[in-house]
Design a protein around this nucleic acid. Structure first.
Length: 851
RNA sequence: GCGGGCGUGGCGGAAUUGGUAGACGCAAGGGACUUAAAAUCCCUCGGCUCGUAAGAGCUGUGCCGGUUCGAGUCCGGCUGCCCGCACCA
């Protein structure tokens, strides 16, 4: 019996799939559609096992759904713009396009080798001028509609990558790629009005039952809806010019208005700027506030700092009461109105501030059971519930009632209105980078900013960009930006900012439905395919890509380009594959394949394989090129074949869980492959199967079909593989030839096909079945056979297992009770005890309560 | 600080609506085959106690308590780890 040889078998079947073109998705087929996709990769040049795991998962689903009769769309593309290409260009003096395309070639080869059931005819790369052109077309439509706009404002500036970042790309005050502390800079920038959709983005989460709760919660928190009151505090004296209505504040606690002891403005509030114009001390204070870092540590330790402007405002409910106006460093300009009223008794920050500057602290919420005559707030603000007191017409109300009453009174006075405020801010979409999709407008001295006509799209990148120096290579290109104005024909310059790569990935799934369409999105094909039925990717995109894609979908829908409200009906967030990191003493990152781990007792140490040099073992982190802790699936596939590698990455751990990479599991996967093949390759023992064994094998077959099917549908691929291991074990105990064995083998080949598709084909062929296994229908189980007709019921006495009985499936409680009480072993156990109660759970367990 | 999740053998992990805890795999040990090794196949494998043995008993899902005939699963408290957000008024 020859051993299974994946080196010969696997390429043969990939060629057979290609020849039959069986993974091509048909637009508008009569079959029900199923659109499954994994987040497309950045073409870094090399596949790691994390990629392999992710794409293997998607492929299991795609192959399973195809076998179940669906018209499956399973596409692949490349998230091809971005900084690594610029860095490579800078280091090696090559064109980023060339580098990117070479990487795509290499990675496509590796992905194809995995035997993924992808419709490669729909492949796209975001750096293709054709793709950019379509993106530019819809971008301009949104601009004309006002959803894209320019404004001057403080933006997040990454001093290392030398570009602006979106709020979502700032993590703990640092750039998400460079890890450099982000600075605040005043610049004119391009934005998308995602805040227009804040409420729909929030409400839409309720329509996504097949999304993980965790992701929905993260988006909900990011959008950050709050209900409150926007109101004006009129000036007690002469108003500040331009702010005649007074100081506009936002609060979620209007119930505590009687506890107000000051009003505070953000340092970058326009009113602050106005006041600073003729107050050098205030100007200096603002400058001090700017210097403060935005990092976590800086905020934790930052002292509350304030500057008394000397101005006063009137309390809305008591015009005789005057409140001082301060400028304070803890007030954020980009939330609410950039100004607050301070109620120190019931807000910790306001309390800290008041204690420092000697401002009044007046409690207005009385905790349950507290004495109004003596209740005081010391150094801890009281933020919980209670009754309002010290508050005139609000006295005695609970907090919610008091909020409503205060809002009504303010509205009646014409000083403000109940308001909903979101934490979400508009999406800054321009990047000062050369390797990105150009923003298709020109700047004309006469006409201003003018859109490039759709007929002239795409605005493509020039070749020969110089990335040897930091900064925007597009901006310093000698000729590219000089053009003529489409409006007046006069001289003009092109916009040299490019779009955030998250714009590229916010609609690629729309383009897959027809990659050749003249319109950005083919409406008929989109109506057929969308929404994506199952999207698979990392949880790290919970508030980045996944929020942007939802927003763009809604914006394009309102532009009439799509009919769907939500892009992804189902979302699965797979776990990351992590690995230890290794560095030289000098700090240089090392490849795991160059490192040898030595275990001595309970201690582990690492050394360089070649020289024995001592290596520092670092943290366990997500595989990334920069830390070099990348393990390639190719090594595994070289030794054991692609199928074993696929089974290995899906075994053992549930798909949503992070896994620390170890190659230990591959042996088990390889054994499974060998054992399966051995069953198909074996000469059947020509001996009739007796009736009892026949039933046993058939039951095992149908049980396996049910178990594997349920496990795949429930995303428990590790359990599905465990059930396959078991099933192979059963089949090998029934070597006798005949119809039942054939039924078992035919099921086995198809059940293992989503995981080990090449092996499945080889087995299918050996069995003499016609056609390709990849095109064969999913096996169907007979529910009667999948269940045993006899059950082994454990018998407990007082909750402890004391024996078991055999009973027919579905036996009634009375029948089971009789069987149990007739059982001599049970009777022996019950000697000297009197039975209080017998609990029979049908087909499951019996418990006798006795004393 | 706020929000969310998770603690099961030496390891990865199974366990329907609460119903035989440890499926399946890895590692380990023993055996068969072999001149030998690899490969393959078979057996054992949570802990403790008793027994020459077959076996029997106790205990056991981070810790304490509760609900229940019955808890890994539900409830309350504690503890440890992980993730997200964070001066958001």
């Amino acid at each position: 019996m020859p051993r299974y040889n994946p080196k010969d078998v696997e390429p043969k079947w990939r060629a057979a799939w290609d020849d039959a073109d069986i993974f091509r998705a048909e637009n508008g087929s009569a079959k029900p559609k199923y659109y499954v996709m994994e987040m497309f990769p950045y073409p870094s040049g090399k596949l790691h096992v994390g990629h392999a795991r992710n794409y293997a998962m998607g492929d299991v689903v795609a192959r399973f759904k195809r076998a179940c009769g669906f018209n499956v769309l399973h596409p692949m593309g490349w998230d091809a713009f971005g900084l690594p290409a610029e860095n490579a260009a800078a280091e090696r003096g090559i064109d980023p396009a060339e580098w990117t395309h070479a990487n795509i070639e290499a990675m496509r080869g590796e992905l194809k080798r995995l035997g993924l059931s992808i419709d490669w005819s729909r492949e796209l790369a975001t750096c293709d001028p054709a793709y950019c052109g379509k993106q530019q077309a819809w971008f301009l439509r949104l601009w004309k509609k006002g959803l894209v706009y320019r404004k001057e404002g403080l933006v997040n500036w990454d001093p290392v990558d030398m570009t602006v970042l979106a709020n979502e790309q700032v993590i703990d005050g640092r750039g998400w790629r460079s890890d450099a502390p982000v600075e605040r800079r005043k610049l004119t920038q391009w934005f998308m009005r995602i805040t227009d959709y804040a409420d729909e983005l929030l409400e839409g989460l309720k329509t996504l039952p097949r999304w993980p709760d965790k992701v929905k919660l993260m988006q909900e928190n990011w959008i950050g809806k709050s209900q409150g009151l926007r109101m004006d505090f009129p000036f007690a004296g002469a108003p500040v010019a331009g702010f005649e209505d007074g100081v506009s504040v936002y609060t979620t606690r209007p119930d505590t208005l009687f506890g107000a002891s000051f009003v505070a403005l953000a340092p970058d509030h326009p009113m602050t700027a106005r006041l600073a114009a003729d107050n050098p001390a205030l100007a200096a204070f603002i400058e001090d506030c700017r210097k403060g870092g935005t990092s976590e540590a800086a905020i934790e330790t930052a002292e509350k700092l304030g500057f008394d402007t000397g101005l006063e405002v009137k309390h809305p409910f008591d015009p005789d009461l005057k409140l001082p106006v301060w400028v304070a460093n803890f007030i954020l300009m980009d939330y609410g109105t950039g100004a607050i009223f301070g109620c120190p008794a019931h807000d910790q920050r306001d309390l800290d501030f008041s204690r420092k500057y000697g401002l009044a602290v007046k409690p207005v919420v009385l905790p349950p059971g507290a004495d109004p005559a003596t209740f005081e707030v010391a150094n801890e603000a009281y933020v919980d519930g209670g009754r309002i007191f010290n508050s005139g017409f609000l006295d005695g109300l609970d907090i919610e009632a008091a909020k409503a009453a205060a809002i009504a009174r303010i509205e009646g006075l014409g000083l403000g209105q109940g308001a909903t405020v979101y934490r979400l801010r508009d999406w800054g979409i321009a990047r000062q980078r050369g390797w990105g999709c150009p923003i298709p407008v020109v700047h004309c001295a006469a006409c201003g900013i003018v859109a490039v006509p759709e007929a002239d799209l795409p605005v493509a990148l020039p070749s020969g960009l110089d990335f040897s120096r930091p900064g925007n290579a597009l901006d310093r290109h000698p000729t590219w930006k000089h053009t003529t104005c489409p409006g007046c024909g006069g001289p003009a310059t092109r916009e040299t900012d490019t779009l955030d790569t998250f714009v590229d990935s916010a609609w690629y799934f729309d383009r897959y439905v027809d990659t050749t369409a003249a319109e950005p999105i083919d409406k008929v094909a989109a109506d057929y395919w969308l929404p994506v039925d199952q999207y698979i990717g990392g949880v790290e995109h919970a508030v980045l890509h996944l929020l942007y894609a939802r927003f763009v979908t809604k914006a394009l829908r309102d532009e009439g380009m799509l009919s769907t409200d939500e892009p992804f009906a189902g979302l699965f967030t797979q776990g990351m594959v992590t690995h230890e990191t290794y560095r030289r003493q000098s700090g240089e990152w090392l490849d795991p394949s160059d490192v040898e781990i030595v275990t001595e007792g309970t201690t582990r140490r690492a050394q360089l394989k070649a020289t024995g040099e001592v290596v520092v073992i670092g943290d366990i982190e997500k595989m990334s090129k920069s830390k070099r802790n990348v393990v390639s699936p190719a090594d595994m596939a070289d030794t054991y074949g692609v199928d074993a590698a696929r089974v290995c990455v899906l075994s053992d751990s549930p798909p949503e869980r992070d896994v620390q990479w170890t190659s230990a599991g591959v042996e088990g996967a390889w054994r499974l492959v060998g054992r399966v093949w051995a069953e198909f390759d074996a000469e059947p023992v020509l001996e009739p199967l007796d009736a009892a064994r026949e039933v046993e094998l058939r039951r095992a077959t149908h049980r396996a079909i049910k178990a594997v099917t349920d496990a795949i549908e429930g995303w428990r691929f590790n359990s599905a593989i465990a059930r396959l291991h078991e099933f192979v074990g059963v089949v090998r105990r029934f070597p006798e030839g005949g119809l039942c064995r054939r039924e078992a083998l035919a099921a086995l080949a198809r059940l293992i096909a989503p995981f080990a598709p090449h092996l499945a084909e080889e087995c299918w062929e050996r069995l003499g079945e016609p056609g390709l296994c990849a095109a064969a229908p999913w096996p169907v189980y007979d529910p009667k056979l999948a269940e045993d007709d006899e059950r082994l019921l454990p018998v407990q006495i007082n909750g402890k297992r004391r024996g078991e009985i055999r009973a027919a499936a579905g036996a009634s409680e009375a029948e089971v009770e009789k069987l149990v009480l007739d059982d001599p072993e049970i009777a022996r156990r019950l000697e000297g005890l009197s039975i209080r109660r017998v609990i029979v759970v049908k087909d499951r367990i019996v418990n006798i309560v006795a004393a």
